[in-house]
Amino acid sequence: MTYDKPLPDTSDGSAPFWEGCAQHELRIQECSACGHRRWPIGPVCTACLSPEHTWVTLPGTGEVWSWIVYHQSFNKAWEPDLPYNVALIKVDGAHTMISNLVDVEPDAVHVGQRVEVVFEDATDEISIPKFRPVS
């Protein structure tokens, strides 16, 4: 089975994040100098500019900050999925990230809904973090 949707470019400094995803862990950079957690992935701390950091594993829970539903095709590989959702998730212990909601009908989604991370194994190397409602 081939996966033809866009995949991450892991040569841009994001490899540790995607290595975490492959192990089904959601990781984030934490500054060793001031403790600030930054997202998206970047070479220096967005609070103090220190490059020193560690990767910490988040609990993987969060809440729906907002969500939208695509009805128009902007990308061939995503076309068969129409209509599909894109969500902005406020991740516990971190910031917001773009993802998809799975195992839920669009009508059942609401802002503030509690969710947890699940990983879609796209290729042997890449697993993509997505979120599903916590029952």
């Binding site: 949707k5 991450p8 470019d9 128009q72 990308n75 995503w78 894109v86 773009i98 998809n100 993509i128």
Partner: peptide, 10 residues
């Protein structure tokens, strides 16, 4: 660009 991983385009 990387948001395309989750189908976010346009």
């Amino acid at each position: 660009l990387s948001w395309g991983i989750w189908g976010m385009f346009g």
